[in-house]
Design a binder for these strands. Structure first.
Lengths: 118, 118
DNA sequence: AGGGAACATCGACGATTGTCAATATGTTCC
DNA sequence: GGAACATATTGACAATCGTCGATGTTCCCT
């Protein structure tokens, strides 16, 4: 178990990929970009990572506290965290030998807006 | 080219899978279900299908009018439509020898709500 | 009845993905 | 410095996925 420390501070700028699906026909290039983002959500482990981070008090969780609740090996968890971070859905913050992860709410909001039907 | 006819009528009931990610920790079974839905969005062709349907006047498009704008073979388009339909993201309506597809807005809304950050 | 059109299904192929064991890198503390 | 710990990376494997050509099925039209 790990002691919770500072809440996560800086949130990176989020680039909104494209207009809502229903607003105009999605261009091919935008579709590829958007598909990659949704692919990050297309895995049960990654969804649970996001949920664990989003519901954590302070909004951040040490990587060491994710392995056990996820029931996956440490390398597998590390892999999923990398996927989420590379796509800008989470941020990481190294503190000593631990790394704290937090969701980037604006990134999730951007994906939500792409799905707006009206 | 095909003449547009009746707008699509009946919208199926949509089952909301789970509470927002940030509301409570996602259960494993729910995570699997949600991941399958997002997997349907994790492909550029399917995103463009949804966009073509959502932006079409009348809200429905004949399958025959999807092949050319998508730039994929007819079997490939048919495959993607099946994926979307099996997951309840679109409905199909057979009219003569054509099949008309339309988005199920409630299904997209359900996915949006899962991503709500607060 | 028969020809043709629209859509679905099948089978096969290359590419990508999730997983873990093993190992590497980096950090803390004695 | 060296041991112990936390995380990341590598390599390998099975499984899934997107794609297309070929074929099947259903419907319309004459």
């Amino acid at each position: 178990m790990t002691v919770r420390e500072l809440p996560v501070l800086t949130q990176p700028d989020v680039v909104v990929c494209c207009a809502p699906l229903a607003a105009e026909v999605l261009a091919e290039a935008d579709a590829v970009t958007l598909a990659k983002q949704f692919a990050a959500l297309a895995d049960p482990v990654r969804l649970r990572v996001l949920s664990l981070l989003a519901t954590a008090p302070g909004g951040a969780v040490c990587a060491c506290d994710l392995v056990e609740p996820l029931g996956k090996s440490q390398p597998t968890v590390s892999h999923h965290l990398k996927v989420l971070r590379d796509l800008g859905l989470v941020t990481s913050d190294k503190r000593g030998r631990n790394v704290w992860y937090a969701v980037v709410p604006a990134a999730l909001e951007a994906l939500r807006s792409a799905l707006a039907t009206r």
